[in-house]
Design a protein around this nucleic acid. Structure first.
Length: 200
DNA sequence: ACAGTGATACAT
DNA sequence: TGTATCACTGTC
């Protein structure tokens, strides 16, 4: 399988993110078409990146080779996944933000009882992980060699148009339009401004 | 607009 | 050790 985004340098992680749109993600009986992503550049370059301040126990997978899954837990209850991109050691990654379910719909619905519409089943980074039934045990697994729980396959069509805007929920680097989504797709997660911090 | 939830990172 | 923060979601 030729993987266009896999061999791009970390300096082009935004292009890798764009190229990932439309790819299909399969895990645990459900397949989704990726409709929304965010790029995070690596060590010392991107204040919004988990790798910005260097390697920790949490983010060490980001410093490994491209094609690995970096899974982290947030707010004590949700999991989000990135695909590591760029050269080893650079810690660039693409956050998988949303998708539309293309197979395993019944399974997806049973895993996301709160979802009112099918377009909301994977309309967010943690929702995506829920429909694919992935958690921290997927951290550090490969998405390209078939050894991990998540596998990827190329887009069926590439005639969609792509929109770009600021990343969701990040306070810093609002100027970089590194969130990409398939234009007009109903499964794209609702944009929420970063929750204003309580002042004293 | 806010609560739920607990791991993580960093300061002490 | 303590504590502030958090690349979120559901319900209000």
């Amino acid at each position: 399988m030729t993987v266009s985004w896999l061999d791009l340098p970390a300096s082009e992680v935004d292009e890798a993110a764009r190229l990932l749109l439309g790819w299909q993600l399969s895990a645990n009986g459900v397949t989704v078409r990726l409709t929304e992503v965010e790029a995070y550049s690596g060590l010392g370059e991107d204040p919004a990146s988990h790798a910005h301040r260097g390697m920790t126990a949490r983010n060490e997978v980001m410093f490994g080779p491209a094609g690995m899954l970096y899974v982290y837990q947030i707010y004590g209850m949700h999991f989000c996944a990135n695909i590591v991109c760029g050269e080893e050691g650079r810690a660039a990654a693409v956050l998988l933000r949303a998708g539309s379910v293309v197979s395993g719909l019944d399974l997806a619905r049973s895993r996301r009882r709160a979802s009112r519409r099918d377009s909301d089943l994977a309309a967010g980074p943690a929702k995506l992980m829920q429909v694919l039934a992935l958690d921290r045990t997927a951290n550090g697994t490969s998405v390209i060699d078939g050894t991990g729980p998540l596998t990827v396959s190329p887009p069926l069509a590439t005639d969609f148009s792509v929109s770009a805007g600021p990343r969701v929920g990040v306070t810093s680097a609002h100027d970089v339009p590194w969130r990409f989504w398939i234009s007009d797709d109903p499964s794209v997660s609702a944009y929420r401004r970063h929750t204003p911090r309580k002042v004293s």
